[in-house]
Structure formats: structure tokens, C-alpha cells
């Protein structure tokens, strides 16, 4: 019961979605099942939020280390949830988008989520720079090829490439750094990416089959029944 029914569901839905590609009359059923998937995805958001709340409330209740920051998470979560669910400050009615201009929800997005997330990721600019200085070494032929390709792209994707090699005549214009960068992207990069893509696709196809046929069961967890 604990394992058989989930395996049956996976087999049924997976097979249906594959067969429906070849049997158009099954299209309606396919769309409905995909919509079920979309709706359950929202429940997964609820699960994520619930889990976050549970973890931080427990931390608060037990007064564990840094519990004050958990209070920040919980307050931020509840505040955002309240202004979103009740559409606080929304200029239109209940049907209007939750993030319409002027709503508190949009104000929070623009002035809290937006700066926090983009700044968090922009930190990587500093770490990439630090790694460039400390870690990228042309220790062997392969590493040197990587660095040369990176240099050509870095130069070729800025106006500096044109400034440095713009004087090279048209009959050998492939040697101009911007053109060289374009060539690298369109030829060796394309070849490498395609090899990786074909490899990944084979992996996805094999894994999908294993899941549908019930050979791969790790997603069910460890309990046996």
C-alpha cells in the first residue's frame, strides 16, 4: 500500500503522457493530468512555506542560537502572506492582479525582495574576481586552452576587442577578437555543448523510463511496505 500505489500512479501518469503524444484523442486527459500537476505544484509551495514556518517557530520556542533572526523570518513571512492574501492596498478589486502597481505586495517586491535577491547574487562578482586571482592557473595544456578561450570571450564581448584588433584587414577578419569570440561560440562551444546535451538527454530518457517502470524507487524514501 505504501509503495505499490505510488508506483502505480507514476506508471499510469507517465505512460499516459507518453502515449498521448501519439494518440491525439487522449489530449484532453493529458491536459487535465498536467493541470493536476500544476495545481499540486502550488501545494508544494504551501508545503515549503509551512515547513519554513515550522522550523523557525521551533527555533523560537526553544530559544535556540540566533532565534532572533528566526523571528525576522517568521515576521517577514507572515507580513508578506497577509498583505498578499488580503490584497492590501490593491487599487482594483479582488480580481485584479495581486502585484498590481500601487499594492503593498508590489511595493514589498520592488523594495525588499528585488534588492535582496539581486544583491545576494551580485556578491558572486566579487567571489569570481577573487577566484580568478587565486585559483585559475594554466597548470597544463587543458587549463591553458580553457583560459585562452575565456580571455577571447571576455575581450570579444566588450568594445575592447574591436579597439585592439579592429585594424586587422577584412581578408583575415576571423582573427579580430570579436569575430574569434563569435566563432568560438558557434563552433567549438556549440560542439562541446551539443555533446553534453546529447549525454544529458540520454540520461533523462533512461531515468524517465526507470521511474515509469518502477525500477528507480529512491523517491519513495527508505520505508519498506
Amino acid at each position: 500500500m505504501k509503495r505499490q500505489i505510488p508506483l502505480l500512479i507514476t506508471f499510469f501518469v507517465g505512460t499516459l503522457l507518453i502515449i498521448s503524444v501519439f494518440v491525439p484523442p487522449l489530449g484532453d486527459l493529458e491536459r487535465d493530468f498536467t493541470l493536476f500537476f500544476d495545481i499540486i505544484a502550488v501545494f508544494a509551495f504551501f508545503l515549503g512555506g509551512g515547513n519554513l514556518l515550522r522550523i523557525h517557530l521551533m527555533k523560537l520556542a526553544n530559544r535556540r542560537k540566533d532565534w532572533g533572526f528566526s523571528a525576522v523570518t517568521v515576521s517577514g513571512f507572515l507580513f508578506m502572506l497577509a498583505i498578499g492574501l488580503f490584497k492590501v492596498g490593491n487599487p482594483g478589486g479582488i480580481a485584479e492582479a495581486v502585484d498590481a502597481e500601487g499594492s503593498w505586495f508590489k511595493v514589498m517586491f520592488d523594495n525588499v525582495i528585488n534588492p535582496l535577491q539581486s544583491t545576494m547574487y551580485s556578491l558572486l562578482a566579487f567571489f569570481v574576481a577573487s577566484a580568478s586571482y587565486r585559483a585559475f592557473r594554466a597548470k597544463n595544456r587543458e587549463a591553458t586552452m580553457l583560459l585562452i578561450a575565456a580571455f577571447i570571450i571576455l575581450l570579444g564581448r566588450t568594445p575592447l576587442g574591436v579597439m585592439l584588433t579592429g585594424w586587422i584587414p577584412e581578408w583575415m577578419s576571423v582573427a579580430q577578437i570579436p569575430n574569434l569570440a563569435v566563432w568560438i561560440m558557434n563552433s567549438p562551444n556549440l560542439a562541446g555543448q551539443r555533446a553534453i546535451m546529447i549525454g544529458i538527454s540520454l540520461g533523462v530518457i533512461a531515468t524517465s523510463l526507470r521511474l515509469i517502470l518502477g525500477v528507480e524507487r529512491s523517491y519513495l524514501g527508505g520505508d519498506s511496505d
Binding site: 574576481a129 580568478s132 592557473r137 594554466a138 575565456a150 580571455f151 564581448r157 575592447l160
Partner: peptide, 15 residues
Amino acid sequence: TLAHVVIMAFIVIGN
């Protein structure tokens, strides 16, 4: 552009 130059310089100096 300037940041690219600086990062390339870091790689060269590091090497």
C-alpha cells in the same frame, strides 16, 4: 568592459 580587464589582469598576475 573595465571589470573584464581587471579580472583578466587578476588571472595574469595570479599566473
